[in-house]
């Protein structure tokens, strides 16, 4: 026999209504809301703080990289490196000198070379032995 065969439908409806009426007997305790909502707000605050720290950290990192790049660029900009003259430049200057005066090619080339040497001397570059033992140009402390 099925369990509800012994009951009339109206009995079942009455039981269901009876049970339904008992639904509001229990209420959550006063502290439960504070416990859940407080924890939710705490986690939300923590998340926001984490997000802020991450954002500020990333910004700081980005700024540091920018400053580093700026310093590197400045250093490069003001770096005083020896720039050797090329034969092409010397030959062009020799041609100019030859055009200005009545000079032989060898004379004009020697003159151009002398000019460059004078320029180096005036800028304070002198030939000195470097750490590897070969001669290299270095800027002297008191250029003439």
């Amino acid at each position: 026999m099925r369990p509800d065969d012994q009951h009339q439908p109206e009995d079942l409806t009455a039981i269901e209504l009876r049970i339904q009426q008992a639904s509001d007997l229990v209420v959550p305790s006063d502290t439960l809301r504070g416990r859940i909502v407080g924890e939710a707000l705490r986690r939300h605050r923590d998340e926001q703080t984490d997000r802020k720290i991450l954002r500020y950290g990333f910004t700081l990192l980005l700024a540091s990289v920018c400053v580093l790049f700026a310093f590197a660029a400045l250093e490069k900009r003001f770096e005083d490196r020896f720039k050797p003259v090329t034969s092409e430049v010397l030959l062009r200057r020799a041609d100019e000198l030859r055009a200005e005066g009545d000079l032989e090619p060898a004379e004009s080339l020697a003159l151009a070379y002398d000019e460059w040497r004078m320029h180096l001397k005036a800028s304070g570059w002198t030939k000195q032995p470097n750490a590897l033992g070969s001669n290299g140009y270095k800027r002297s402390a008191n250029p003439e």
């Binding site: 099925r2 369990p3 509800d4 079942l12 009455a14 039981i15 009876r18």
Partner: peptide
């Protein structure tokens, strides 16, 4: 169905 049957037995006299 089983639950309602039992409940009706338990609460029947009140019903």
């Amino acid at each position: 169905r089983y639950a309602i049957a039992k409940l009706s037995e338990m609460l029947g006299h009140q019903i």
